[in-house]
């Protein structure tokens, strides 16, 4: 297996995630797209870690931290979405129009 094939796959996932962030209006769906980008990041870290035979296992450790932090972020995000839903029964970010851009 070459390193480049993993990097191309991760670039594809990252770009698809960016597409999702730009195209989706619903906060939960935007968050799902960001998860795709983080999955791409993890593939990069693990593949590079293997490539360098990093003695401190840096790539894999970083991937573990990314997974942990992402779990915390999803918890925060869904709490905020739930809060907004309570107050106005919609989770679409475009309909948040009290504050103008």
């Amino acid at each position: 297996m070459t390193l480049a094939q993993f990097l191309v796959l991760s670039a594809a996932l990252f770009s698809i995630g960016i597409y999702g962030v730009l195209i989706r209006r619903n906060a939960v769906l935007v968050l799902l797209s960001v998860e795709l980008m983080l999955a791409a990041v993890n593939i990069n870290f693990v593949a590079f870690g293997r490539y360098f035979a990093d003695s401190t296992a840096g790539g894999q450790v970083f991937a573990l931290f990314v997974v942990t932090v992402a779990a915390a972020e999803v918890g925060i995000g869904l709490a905020i979405v739930l809060l907004i839903f309570r107050n106005r029964a919609s989770a679409n970010i475009d309909e948040l129009d009290v504050l103008k851009w």
Partner: peptide
Amino acid sequence: NEAALKFFI
């Protein structure tokens, strides 16, 4: 609420 969501995203 919106401030939090925008900031979070």
